[in-house]
Design a protein around this nucleic acid. Structure first.
Lengths: 192, 192
DNA sequence: TCGAATCTAACGAACGTTCGTCAGTTATCT
DNA sequence: AGATAACTGACGAACGTTCGTTAGATTCGA
C-alpha cells in the first residue's frame, strides 16, 4: 500500500524537521514518487499530517494499554519499572513516540487546536488507567499514601523525565544512570 | 538599540513557530522595519538565530547560578523547592526558557551541532553545581544517600518533569497538583 | 564655522529557489 | 474499456538573500 509508505516517510521527516521544515518533495523522494502524486492519496499537507498524527496516537495508546492489561497481577515494583522500560523501548524502536512528543510540545500553530484535542484525550485516558491501578495497590497496602492521584502524578513525572532525557541526548550510559536515580528515589518515596 | 529589538522579536517567533516556521518578514514586521534591514544588523537568519540562542543561554545560566549562590545557607528542603519555583517563574515571566527548551529538544538540523554544544555545556555546569550541593548535605547527614549523583539526577528529573508540564498545557491547577505530587514523593525518597 | 567626507539605518526592487497546489496526460492492469 | 496511480507542466506565493540608493546624523579639516 503506497499511502502507508507515504505516511511512513512523512512521519520520519515531520519528526526530524517539524511540520514547517518537512516538505512534500522530500517525502515524495523518500518514497520514490513525485510530490504531486501525493495528492492522489491525500487532500494536502494538512490532511497527510493529521492522518499521521492519528496513526501515531493509536499506536502509542494501544501499546501502553496493552502493557497495563498484561501486568494486572504483577507487583507494583515490576509493573511500574517495566512500564518505564516499555517507554524507552517504544522510543528507540520506532519513530511514532518521538513524532508524538514533538507535536504535543510544539504543534504547528494553525493545527494546534486539533492536535491539543488528541493530546489531552490520550493523556486523560492514561492517567485514569494509572490512577485506578494505584488505588488498588493502596487498598492492598502495597503503596504508602491516601490519595492515589499523588503517586500516580509523581510516576507520570518520572516517565516524563525519562522521555525528556531520551529526546535530549540519546546517550545510553547517561540514560541508565538517570533512570536508576529517578526510579530508586521514587520507589523509596512511595513504598510503605 | 534596534538589534536588541530585532532579537526580541526573533526570540518570540522562533519560540512560537520554530526556526523553519519563523520568517524574517514576520520578525521585521514586529519591529516595524523591512526584512532587508535585518541584514544591516545580522549576517543572515542563522547569525540572528545563534545570537538569540547565546543570549538565552546566558540569561538562563546566570539566573540559575545566582539562585544557587543566594541559598548557600538554606536547608535542602527550602533550597530545592525554591529552585522548582524559580524555574516555573522563569518560564512564565519571559520567553527565553521556552525558546531554549524548544531548541534543545528539536534543533534545526543544519545547526544541531552548534546548538548541542551549548546545551551540553549549560547542562554540565548545572549538574556540577547541584551535585556539589548535594554532597555537602550528605556530609551533614541531611540527605539519605551515599552517592550524591543519585539524588542530584533524581532532582534534575523532577525539574525536567515540571518543565515538561509547563510546555505541555499551561494549566495552573494541573501544574500545582503535579508539582506537589512529584515534590512530596521525591522529598520522602531522599530525606533521612 | 562651514562644507566635505564618512557613517548609519533604513528603503524598493529584484534575484534564484522552493513551497503547496491544481490540471491534464500517460502508463499499467484487471 | 475503464480505473487506478503514476506522470509532466505550470501556477501564485513566499522564502532568504543581494544590490544599489536615499535620507539623516556624525566627524573633521580648513
Amino acid at each position: 500500500m503506497k499511502s502507508t509508505e507515504i505516511k511512513e516517510a512523512a512521519l520520519k521527516f515531520f519528526t526530524i524537521h517539524g511540520y514547517e521544515g518537512a516538505s512534500l518533495s522530500q517525502i515524495a523522494d523518500e518514497v520514490g514518487i513525485k510530490k504531486q502524486s501525493i495528492y492522489g492519496h491525500f487532500k494536502g499537507k494538512d490532511d497527510l499530517f493529521l492522518q499521521v498524527l492519528r496513526d501515531a496516537k493509536d499506536t502509542e495508546l494501544s501499546s501502553k494499554l496493552t502493557y497495563f492489561q498484561s501486568t494486572l497481577d504483577e507487583a507494583p515494583e515490576q509493573s511500574l519499572y517495566g512500564y518505564l522500560q516499555l517507554v524507552i523501548d517504544l522510543f528507540q524502536k520506532n519513530e511514532h513516540l518521538k513524532f508524538w512528543l514533538r507535536m504535543s510540545f510544539f504543534p504547528p500553530a494553525h493545527l494546534a487546536e486539533a492536535i491539543t484535542e488528541e493530546v489531552v484525550d490520550l493523556e486523560d485516558q492514561m492517567q485514569v488507567v494509572i490512577e485506578k491501578r494505584f488505588s488498588e495497590w493502596i487498598e492492598k497496602g502495597l503503596i504508602h499514601n491516601s490519595d492515589p492521584s499523588i503517586p500516580a502524578l509523581a510516576f507520570i513525572g518520572v516517565v516524563d523525565s525519562i522521555l525528556l532525557e531520551l529526546v535530549y541526548v540519546n546517550d545510553e550510559k547517561r540514560l541508565c544512570k538517570k533512570l536508576e536515580a529517578s526510579w530508586s528515589i521514587f520507589w523509596r518515596g512511595i513504598s510503605s
